[in-house]
Each structure stands twice: as C-alpha cells, then as structure tokens.
Design a protein around this nucleic acid. Structure first.
Length: 413
DNA sequence: ACACGACCTTCCGC
DNA sequence: AGCGGAAGGTCGT
C-alpha cells in the first residue's frame, strides 16, 4: 500500500497545542515516536499529526479492506472482531517484559538518526502544501477522502469551538486562571470515541498515567483488530480499540487479571456486559444528547464507574463540557487556590465533590470542564519546568533506562 | 449520611 | 537492598 500524503488544515497554535492536548491524560493512545510527530489511532485508522503556528498537518494509514468497506463493498467487519484472547501471549505478570513503561521514549532508533528522516518527511509535507495552493476544486475521490478526513479531525479536536475566546472569558472571570493559562495555551477537550474513553477511564482508578497507557495498549492489542499498515512507525503495531462484545466475552476478566489489570479486570468485563445488554455502544452515544446529570447518573450504573470516572467520560466523549472530574489532584488545586475551607475537610465525600464542581461551574460557566483541564494540565509533574522535572532528574532517569535495557539483553541471551 | 479500609500493580524515593 | 507511599478511585461495611 502506498504511503499516505500529508494534508493540512488551518489551525492557530492558540487554538490547539498538540503536545499538551495529547499528553495531558485525556487520551492514552498518542505517542511521540518521532519528535513533533504524534501517532495514534482514531476509528480504524492510524493517524500522524504535526503542527506549525498556523497549520495542522495530518496523514492517515488505513487497511485497504476498510477503505473498500467504507466505499460500500460488502465486508463484514463484525466477523473480524476478536473475541478470543491471545492465550499464547498471556504470561505471569512477573515475567512480562517491561515494555511500554515509558511513554515518550523512542526505542527503535537513537534520536540523532531520526532527525534527518523527519526533516525529509516535513519537506515532503511542505512541497505537497505548495502544490495544493491554490486549492483545487474537482470531484476526484482523493479530494473527497481529504474532505472526510478533515471532517473527522475537526470533529475529534472540536475545532469549531473557539478556544482562544473562551480562554479570554475564563481569564476575565478568574485571575488565577488568567495567570496560569498564559503558559498553557491551546489545551482543548477531545471528542473521543465513547467506548475507548469509558474503558480507558475504568482503568484509571487509583492508577497513574503510564500504567493506564500500557493497559489501554493491552486492551487494544489483545481484543482489538490489528490495523494492517506499513511504513508507518518502524516496529510498531496498531490496533483498533475493541468492540464492547469482545470485552464482554467469556473469560475476559480472568485473562485481564493475568495481564496485570488487577481488580479493574472485573470492572471491565462487567461494564461491557451491562452495555451489551442495554443496547450496545448506542447506549453510550445516546448520552450525547442528555442533560449532564442524567448522563452522569446513567454512567454510574456501571461497575467501576464512580462520580469521578463518570465525569471524565461525560466530559471527554459525551458532549458534556460542564463536567468537572474531581480527583485528589483537583481537590488539592481547589483547596490551595480557590476554596481554602476545603483544607479542613477529612475526605472527599459526595457532598464536597458536588460543591467543588458547582463552584467551578459557577466561576467558569458552561465549559467549566474545559477550563478545569487547563489547570489540571498545568499541575501535572511532567509539565512543570524548573522545580520538579529538572535536567538532573531527566539524566538520572535516562541512565536507569539504559541499565534496564542492558539487563533485558543479558537475560535474553 | 459518612468515614474507613481493602483492592491490583508498578514505579519512585529514601 | 528492601520497603513504604502514591498513582487523575470505587466498593462494601
């Protein structure tokens, strides 16, 4: 299959910062294998993204069969849903390779070797862009494909929502937001696929981003269909996120436990089963047109979905921009910068949870959930420059990694 | 209502 | 070297 070309849509950097938006813990599917190029799965395609101050570049890799199916050929995709786990890849947790534990590392090649490659890629991109101006209007299938991909991306990033204007309005209402947000522009909520979003956040309970990421990868790898692409990222495989039926199948819980999911294994299978018995993924999609409170109440019927996870899902894939997921982190932020009386509280009970959410909704308005994610991201360790993520620490960690690599190598011999 | 403690696993720091 | 604590919580008592 021929490698796809880079395409472009106009997008100001103030409207979207890929580096922040894709790594702040709303989606766990994006990796920066190459500097400045983000690779991830949306729907049944592998997407690569890159941006400049004024433009968003993308290319999509897809199965040939999927492209055919979309054009109307009879290909029963359901037939290809994996419901049986890959038993041969299930091994005791202790013996498992520690793959995927570092999110943004470039494993296959040293960075220095990659840079010329990226440069060349970007040159290709640029020459293509020059060619495509002025815009060509015709009916070729290539153009139509571009249009529909544009649409997918605009929808995924919700580019019709004017982020810069909202930042202004939040800043006007909130001095603290005004200060913090100057360094953290372009953070917007994705409009994710509900099934993936839900199960990702069921994995998130009492957990950290790097392990959540590896668990989401495992769900895709063991229960999702492989996307057959080449020349995308050397040595990497990509999988569509599993269908609900695959996660509801017999033996899933047991298998996920073997894969290291812990007590979340049960939550996943039980929730999948509940959804299957209540209309499948449509049950989730209908919540996109519900009132916030109804959507949240419905989500909380699922096992493993409490108030916080429900708010994450509502905010990140169900068109509920007023959802405020109040985790321990947001609780700290609220107590520290907004509601000093919270310092007295012993634990985050239901009443307090609602109080914090209501406070921010009152302060920031109907898109309060979006504003919340700006402050949340600014508070993540990985984005704090100066104090926590000092160069010293980075070097230290790098050293540790290479030690691990050595160990692995010597063990396998 | 409300506050605990248990729950899986991994990683990091002392 | 090995252990305690935390990681974007949820559930049952």
């Amino acid at each position: 299959m021929a490698a796809p070309m880079w395409k472009t849509i106009p997008c100001k950097i103030a409207e979207l910062r890929l580096d922040l938006t894709l790594a702040c813990g709303q989606s766990f599917r994006w990796k920066e294998y190459m500097p400045g190029i983000y690779t991830g799965v949306i729907g049944n395609g592998v997407w690569q993204l890159h941006q400049t101050d004024t433009e968003l570049f993308y290319k999509v890799y897809r199965n040939k069969d999927d492209v055919k199916a979309e054009l109307g050929d009879a290909v029963d995709i359901k037939q290809e849903i994996k419901t049986e786990p890959d038993l041969d890849t299930v091994v005791p947790a202790k013996k498992r390779k520690k793959e995927n534990s570092k999110m943004h590392c470039i494993k296959k090649e040293p960075v220095d070797n990659l840079i010329p490659k990226v440069k060349k890629d970007l040159e290709t991109m640029n020459s293509h862009c020059l060619k495509s101006f002025p815009p060509v209007h015709n009916n070729s299938s290539v153009e139509q494909e571009t249009d529909s991909d544009d649409h997918v991306l605009k929808d995924y990033f919700q580019l019709d929502i004017k982020l810069e204007e909202m930042y202004k309005s939040w800043s006007k209402a909130d001095q603290h937001f005004s200060k913090i947000s100057k360094e953290f522009t372009g953070i917007r909520m994705l409009r994710q696929e509900p099934v993936e979003c839900l199960f990702s956040f069921i994995c998130s309970s009492n957990n950290n981003i790097s392990r959540i990421t590896s668990m989401v990868d495992k769900l895709a790898k063991h229960y999702g269909r492989k996307i057959l692409v080449s020349n995308c990222v050397d040595g990497e495989e990509f999988y569509i996120f599993p269908k609900v039926e695959a996660l509801a199948a017999e033996g899933v819980e047991e298998n996920l436990r073997k894969l290291g999911f812990g007590y979340r294994a049960k939550y996943i299978q039980q929730s999948a089963r509940y959804i299957q018995e209540n209309g499948g993924e449509d049950w989730l999609y209908t919540m996109r047109s519900m009132e916030y409170k109804d959507a949240k109440k419905n989500l909380m019927k699922l096992c493993g979905v409490g108030a916080k996870v429900a708010d994450c899902v509502a905010l990140m894939c169900l068109d509920q921009p007023g959802s405020i997921p109040v985790d321990t982190h947001v609780w700290q932020i609220a107590a520290r910068d907004y509601m000093p009386k919270l310092k007295q509280a012993k634990s985050l009970n239901e009443k307090l949870y609602e109080e914090i959410g209501d406070y921010f909704r009152d302060l920031w308005g109907p898109y309060a959930g979006w504003a919340h994610s700006v402050l949340f991201t600014a508070d993540l360790k990985q984005f704090k420059n100066g104090t926590k993520e000092s160069p010293k620490k980075a070097v230290k960690r790098k050293g540790k990694d290479s030690t691990k690599e050595e160990k692995k190598k010597s063990k396998s011999k």
